[in-house]
Design a protein around this nucleic acid. Structure first.
Lengths: 355, 355
DNA sequence: CGCCTTGTTGCATACGGATGCAAATTGGAA
DNA sequence: TTCCAATTTGCATCCGTATGCAACAAGGCG
């Protein structure tokens, strides 16, 4: 242990002053002639301490700019007040908004967000081992992909974990997701109302649960309505370029009245390809719909009909799960489905309400 | 302190098994018949320990799934290996990409990112006090606005702080920024080459350094080239809607050949307004340029000429500053300017190279 | 007026790992 | 063979806060 040098008179040439160590509870206590416990209690709501003592301590603490050291507090309590947020794709504009709202809501109840950016290439286990070492109070996973359920179980072992927009049954992981089947069916119904009969589906990452649910919901409803599935394109990723490529394939193939892209960023890439490269008009020649309702979907050039994910509600539910008895989450993984909302815009020929 | 119950034979009804506490270095040491120091040293690169002992410990640790507790380590060392990232605007698509690259690079050298999402409305001091309590090793500020230099100095007191895309002189804060003046001048030159003579500037948040530099760089160069500044619009924010609004104002006013928007998201809002609402053609009737080179700038509908910020280099420099002797950053705040690159696209009538 | 209850306060120690220092071991040189 | 230096190892203590427990004070009641 490096001993803090006693304040020598033959002082350092100055300059050292601003990086001095922060004051500790013990020091503060000594200055006030009370015990360190008293200081700790003053900062602990509900602790057994007289009101006037607490006030005196807090006042003096403010004067000398004392704040309890969070690290030390983490060590002695079990809680860190840190939530691990596992992310793998911030390129999809849907996620930044979600992450922002999430971290704000968490902050509001005193929780900080520790970001774990998972990359496809490298060693996942190594990347996630930090998640375990940091003793986060809970883990929120916003990665639709990449991590297998078993990897996640390992990484979050012993602490509550909530997946957003991904559902894994029979693990100890809780899930909060949009009702993708409902959304996909709503899109199918809407296509039908708009007169489409031959429709196509463009997948995002094929093996993700979001994709599978949207796909099966759509395809099933299409059949129920007596519509034809003209093309179905498998996907490697949820991206602008993937959407573009898929749209060109569809435009080159058999006639199609409407395309449902697995999410908005795909759909936007698709619209651009259709308009700029394939020479199609949207919605005159072909209808297009997406899923999520990212900001760009509302831009006039796209005006994309989509199924809006209930982001605020997702955030609310996740935060409630964490705020509530987290140990309950450990006993019994919960899966919650939230309803979204069909947003009809011009890309499917709807006349959007003034927004 | 809650004592860890001795493993009673009359066990809990099961169920408790999966949430048992992780093993500690002391326990591991006892099992191996070595001291806790040995375990600690085995995990400390360069520590004084025999190679075979280290190997034996690491091997056994892997077997019983032991990992050093990061919190405890933070308390005894001075380092937390956590970098605070202060963000205030994730809506601007420029930032998610930056944040993602930054956090990845930090992770690569063993640093985690703790997110501090600063909201305009509420009590900043309170929001930032967490930044101090968590003892982060350094702070990276990606907020072009909101926080005053003095607030930041207070919040980061005693630890290295680096502002990205914002320059504050005469504080203890280091800065890494794009050369905004160079970029703005490049845009002015480009406008001139493309034949524009009456040009407009649309500000983002007026009082931010990025805005001031881009504005003065542009306006100065305009004058040097003998061009006229037809309009100059002050701004409240860097957003799609602000860009839209500004474009409409300009379209309604005196004739203008070209508009330089303070960043891409403004420009994109501007293009939409010009095309869809004002009935102007871009670039036929008016040229448009932005700044940043966000992904949407490359989308065919916008095809926006812009000045690309050297994101990778910014990240590299910031990480190097942190990786290097951080204490040096405390003694002498450094300001680094990086060069960007003019990306000529169709919004100014340029024929883009095939990308 | 004495005893018990309720409320405060301090003491001691725990949390889990890092590290200065001394003790122990080994190897090599004289 | 003897002694010193280099390397390893363990002991003890520290990091800064939280909290069980005991001591202590004040107030109420019989």
């Amino acid at each position: 242990m490096r001993k803090q040098g006693s304040p020598s008179l033959q002082g350092e040439p100055s300059g050292e002053a601003f990086s001095r160590k922060p004051i500790t509870a013990r020091e503060l206590a000594r200055m006030l002639g009370v015990s360190q416990s008293a200081v700790s209690r003053a900062f602990t709501p509900g602790a057994s301490i007289a009101a006037d003592l607490r006030e005196r301590i807090l006042k003096y603490a403010a004067e000398v700019d004392y704040q309890p050291n969070a690290i030390a507090s983490m060590l002695s309590k079990s809680r860190t007040n840190i939530i691990g947020i596992v992310v793998s794709d911030m390129q999809n504009p849907f996620y930044p908004g979600l992450i922002e709202k999430l971290s704000r809501s968490l902050q509001r109840i005193g929780l900080q967000s520790l970001l774990f950016n998972i990359t496809k290439g490298s060693n996942l286990e190594e990347q996630l081992s930090a998640l375990r070492r940091y003793n986060v109070d809970a883990v929120i996973v916003i990665s639709a992909t990449i991590l297998s359920g078993s990897t996640l179980s390992w990484a979050t072992e012993g602490r509550p974990a909530i997946l957003i927009n991904r559902v894994i049954e029979d693990t100890n992981l809780s899930c909060v997701a949009c009702n993708n089947v409902e959304g996909a069916r709503a899109i199918a119904d809407h296509f039908h109302r708009q007169g489409a009969r031959r429709v196509a589906y463009v997948a995002g990452l094929s093996h993700t649960t979001t994709n599978r649910e949207r796909q099966s919901g759509f395809v099933t409803r299409i059949a129920e309505l007596g519509m034809t599935l003209s093309v179905q394109i498998e996907g490697q990723e949820y991206s602008y370029h993937a959407g573009r490529k898929a749209a060109l394939e569809i435009a080159a193939g058999k006639s199609t009245d409407a395309i449902f892209f697995a999410n908005d960023i795909l759909a936007i890439g698709g619209i651009d390809a259709l308009k700029e490269e394939a020479g199609c008009r949207v919605p005159d020649d072909i209808l297009v719909a997406g899923f999520d309702d990212i900001p760009m979907a509302g831009w006039p050039h796209y005006n994309l009909t989509t199924f809006r994910q209930p982001v605020d509600e997702i955030v609310r539910v996740v935060v409630e799960m964490i705020e509530g008895d987290t140990s309950a989450l450990l006993r019994a993984a919960t899966t919650i489905r939230l309803s979204g909302e069909l947003i009809e815009r011009r890309s499917t020929g709807a006349e959007p309400d003034a927004e």
